[in-house]
Computed example of a mutant assay.
Amino acid sequence: MVLRKSGRIWLLAISLSLSLSLLTGCTGTFSLKKPQKPVQVVYRFDDHRWLELKGFNCQGELWFVDKNRGIRSQIWSQFYRIFTKPYINASERYIAVPGWDMTGAMSVSRDYGQTWQTSRAYGDEDDGSNKPVYNKIKSLTVVNDQGFLLTNQGHIYMSSLPFDDPRLEPGGPGIDYTITFRGREIAHHINAGDPGIGGNSSTWGLNYVDPRILHKLTWQYYTNFQNLPDKVPEVKNYRGWTQMQCDLNAGL
């Protein structure tokens, strides 16, 4: 009995193995391998620079590519979702990459896309918040190495002019200024290398400020936050896309 039972099990195993072999041989579709994550270009700055998204359902890793300079750098390692509002990035040295559900924070590069940092936004919205929520953002424009985040209410969050204040560089004299408090003028001094708000003194392009509140911040004394534009500059001869694009069904 044991031998016959073992024999039947052995024959059944052979039969199942042959069936699977025939199935895979005939159809070529039976596989236990996981599908490869699709890679698609979701934004083009021009003919030699673009953003690649690797992942399903328009979410995943985000990479920047500059074919001419030989740059391929990772911006997001996972969970990136594309920015769905109008977006123009006409600068090469300075790049600001927004994402879905942002509140003024973006991935920013100041060296042609080789390295990336996170920006911050400072403002005074009508709803009492100090940052623009995603559904109130109208567009992002980057031109002349400066970023302009426009809201539906017409507020503009802009980065500084593209240089650091030389007075705050190592060995610099710092900045002297006075404030009036209860009718008295009080002298203040910003030391060279003072970290200030949002990082060290070398922060051009990392902080987006609504000019309506600039008078409340010490940045008003920095040369790169003076003489800021009062509107989003016009972009001419732009060769890139004006909005990110993504195929939700890619790889499925």
Rank of each mutant, 00 (worst) to 15 (best):
W10T: 14
I14T: 10
S15T: 07
L16I: 13
S17T: 13
S19D: 05
L20M: 14
L23T: 05
T24K: 02
C26Q: 12
G28T: 01
G28D: 00
S31H: 01
K34M: 12
K34W: 06
Q36S: 13
Q36L: 09
P38W: 02
V39G: 03
Q40H: 03
V41D: 07
Y43Q: 04
R44E: 09
F45Y: 00
D46N: 15
H48N: 11
H48I: 05
W50Q: 10
W50H: 14
L51R: 09
K54Y: 01
N57C: 00
C58G: 10
G60L: 08
F64H: 10
D66V: 03
D66P: 00
D66A: 03
K67I: 05
G70Q: 01
I71T: 15
I75V: 15
W76A: 12
F83P: 03
T84R: 10
T84F: 01
K85I: 11
K85S: 07
P86S: 10
Y87R: 03
I88Y: 05
S91C: 08
Y94M: 09
Y94P: 12
V97H: 06
P98T: 13
D101M: 15
D101G: 07
D101A: 13
M102V: 12
A105T: 13
S107G: 08
R110K: 10
R110N: 01
Y112Q: 11
G113A: 04
T115F: 04
Q117L: 15
T118W: 12
A121K: 14
Y122Q: 07
G123L: 07
G123F: 09
G123N: 06
D124Y: 12
E125Y: 14
G128M: 05
P132R: 03
P132G: 10
Y134F: 15
N135F: 13
K136I: 05
L140N: 01
L140D: 06
V142I: 09
V143G: 00
N144A: 05
Q146A: 09
F148V: 08
L149G: 05
L150R: 11
G154S: 11
I156P: 01
M158S: 10
M158G: 01
M158P: 00
P162Q: 09
D165T: 02
D165C: 00
D165I: 01
L168Q: 01
E169K: 03
G171S: 10
G171H: 08
P173S: 13
I175A: 02
I179N: 14
T180N: 14
R182K: 15
R182L: 14
G183W: 07
E185P: 09
E185C: 04
I190N: 00
N191V: 01
G193A: 08
S201M: 12
W204Y: 15
L206V: 04
V209S: 07
V209F: 14
V209L: 09
V209D: 11
V209H: 08
V209N: 08
P211K: 04
P211V: 04
L214C: 13
T218R: 11
Y221N: 11
Y221Q: 13
Y221K: 10
Y221F: 15
T223P: 00
F225L: 12
F225I: 06
N227D: 14
D230Q: 11
D230G: 07
K231L: 05
V232I: 10
V232W: 09
E234D: 04
K236F: 02
N237C: 02
Y238M: 00
W241G: 03
T242M: 08
M244W: 04
C246R: 06
N249M: 02
N249F: 06
